[in-house]
Design a protein around this nucleic acid. Structure first.
Lengths: 137, 137
DNA sequence: AGATGAACATGATGTTCATCA
DNA sequence: TGATGAACATCATGTTCATCT
């Protein structure tokens, strides 16, 4: 009996999704952008979700970008579903015991690959934007 | 009796829409991007909708962006609704008589203002993207 | 058939409500 | 009460169908 790996299932699902409706290719999605940042944050700091949200909001405040709570969590869940991150549940002692979730990279190779992918898309987007300035001004 | 101008009605409608749901401010929308291009095309060339679509698809093919037919038309309609463009209907003689719609700027000031607005957003977006590269690579 | 337009469908993402420690 | 998660609502945009010359 042929075994089907998790990775294959995900690959198929992603492929199916991609072909349901063909994106026009205009810039990239916020989700990908956040996932890239969340990977980097996990690589460099030890933060739980809510802290990541606060950090990103501070970082981008001056640029008028304020990511949503749900986008952060959905991005983190995506990264877990695709086998890049895993949860590290911890109890934060305090007035009231508080469960928080930290993250850890479980597949460095995949993480690196994903970031490279997003990077290419960022480069492409910058080209589009620069072209627009050249063409319209 | 107080008269309400078209512009006021539109302004109100747009304002209402803006406040229904606050955008997070991540990059900008394809629609605004296209509207900017369509204004510029109208300023510089005499093209009807379908020709504009073809032109833009050619321009951006190498960058992997292929705008949709409906996005072009919706963008043109937006520009008409907001008093920036007007239609110039013409009959293209040929094997079969064919109605096409050209466009003309009817409010240069508004057109210029809109483009400037988009430009600011493009600059902001480029900043976000450059920051992302700096932060993640 | 080519050009336009509108209805519809779906994906991306923001808001609200629920849960849990 | 702070952190997380899921259901829901709405907007942006792609696809399909209709119309007109």
């Amino acid at each position: 009996m042929a075994t089907v790996t998790e990775a294959q299932i995900r690959a198929k699902r992603e492929n199916d999704q991609e072909h349901k409706r063909t994106p026009s290719g205009f810039l990239f999605k916020q989700r990908a952008f956040l996932k890239m940042y969340l990977i980097t944050l996990t690589e460099n700091k030890r933060l739980y979700g809510h802290e990541m949200l606060d950090l990103l909001r501070n970082e981008f405040r001056s640029l008028g970008y304020r990511p949503t709570r749900s986008e952060i969590y959905k991005s983190l869940h995506d990264l877990i579903d695709t086998g890049i991150l895993e949860e590290v549940v911890e109890i934060k002692e305090g007035l009231k015991r508080q469960k928080v979730i930290y993250y850890r990279i479980i597949n460095k190779q995949k993480a690196k690959k994903y970031k490279e992918l997003v990077r290419e898309d960022i480069d492409r987007s910058i080209k589009i934007l620069n072209k627009a300035i050249k063409d319209n001004f």
